[in-house]
Design a protein around this nucleic acid. Structure first.
Lengths: 237, 237
DNA sequence: CGCAAACTTGATGTTGCTCAAGCTAGGTGG
DNA sequence: CCACCTAGCTTGAGCAACATCAAGTTTGCG
């Protein structure tokens, strides 16, 4: 858990490029620009912690962020990894319910919650836009609940790899970058680091994937990986 | 999975009493009334199924509903139990991502999605209200992910009992009604029915709870139950 | 080049699952 | 009204999946 400091760079960028305003009118994106500010964080740095006052919403411009919750004895569950274009901080009212940390170098666009509230009242489509974002998050959370509660270790890892592949390249790229550690993956899937390693080794051995390096994986047999991930496999691993 | 038919009762009730319009202006609740219709379902009946077109939002007026997702081989995860005042069907866009079934006799208020969309454009606060509901669901989903991914069987069951107690009586009642079967509880906690039984027996034996009947439980030692649920226990069960 | 963090692999342990048997309660029909 | 019948619940014995503990190995950085 090292934290490599990166100087915050207050700045403005064109929010019509940003996801938060997608599909909205020019006037609204202009208002968004007026209340936004850019930030940077280095790997391991905290954006906000569980229990902090939730006064901002962030959009990730570049990089990957992990969100997690802790139990008192230190057990951790990562509720999600977010990459460019994703919003965070929408959910909480009053107090943050999870911690957000940079996985890689991260560039963020920050919006004050009070300003967003005002904009929601003024711009008709904006609250609907945020509702749509929240709905998608809810859907992802429910898929993840199914994974955590009912999938086997192999199915979990296969699902994770496919999810990472989707979030990457524009097309269904079979080459994927895994910026997070094995520990992060384990805490995301409700497993231990050793189990994640063993499953990856088995997938490699069975030629479903190939590891170009620790953080670069290629999907060799997408069909079988998808079959495994969705839980259609009877006797495997 | 029996389905006891109950005749649908088209009707209108005063939506200012309903949760969907909480905190909104009189004019908005009146519009809500105009687009609402009452429905009833008996135990085991389906409100909508995974894959159905998601054209409605429901509010539960009375009773309990379970939401679940299935894996191809039949493994089931219940993503939530909803009781009076809760909304369902908010999340999906296009297609339902889970099945909703009545646990008990259920009375529902149904709103057409298209009508809600229109109302969101007209009534300023309404989209914000729905966003707030979605945010709360998201928060609950994240707590459940922590439970599913990182809690032990005993911690899961303790958490479930406390959650049920909260949702019940107005005060923090220590008497709770458990309308769902042990099987439902197991599929909600990512356990088997046998494990749920064993944990309940152990909690009974340790005098943390008492079972008045199969579906009526009394919390005898709330402090220890909360300690167990939050994961502060080192060596227990 | 050397160090520390991350990763991998193996041996052993434990939690919760599976399989199996009996029990309980509530609804139905004689 | 009671006895039966069935769905749901409980408990036990054995087992498997995954966790834990313990070495090593690799990698990237100073």
């Amino acid at each position: 858990m090292y934290a490599q400091a990166v100087s915050a760079t207050p700045a403005r960028i064109d929010p019509s490029r940003l996801a938060i305003g997608r599909g909205l009118e020019r006037q609204t994106t202009t208002s968004l620009m007026a209340i936004s500010s850019l930030q940077k964080k280095g790997p391991g740095e905290t954006l906000f912690a569980e229990g902090d006052e939730a006064d901002s919403v962030y959009e990730i411009v570049l990089g990957t962020v992990r969100l997690y919750k802790l139990l008192p004895d230190g057990r951790r569950l990562i509720t999600g990894f977010l990459s460019a274009g994703k919003l965070l901080g929408l959910a909480p009212e009053g107090v943050c319910i999870y911690t957000a940390e940079a996985v890689t170098n991260v560039t963020l666009c920050r919006y004050k919650r009070t300003a967003l509230e005002r904009l929601m009242d003024e711009a008709p489509g904006f609250a609907k836009r945020l509702l749509s974002v929240a709905s998608h998050e809810l859907r992802a959370a429910q898929d993840q609940m199914l994974l955590l509660g009912r999938k086997t270790a192999a199915e979990k890892v296969a699902s994770f790899l496919l999810m990472m592949a989707e979030g990457q390249g524009e097309e269904d790229a079979d080459e994927l970058d895994v910026p997070m550690t094995r520990n992060d993956i384990a805490d995301y899937l409700g497993l231990t680091i050793e189990t994640v390693c063993r499953v990856l080794s088995k997938l490699k051995q069975d030629k479903l994937i190939a590891c170009e390096s620790k953080s670069h994986i290629r999907i060799c047999d997408r069909d079988r990986l998808e079959e495994l991930a969705s839980g259609e496999t009877d006797t495997d691993l």
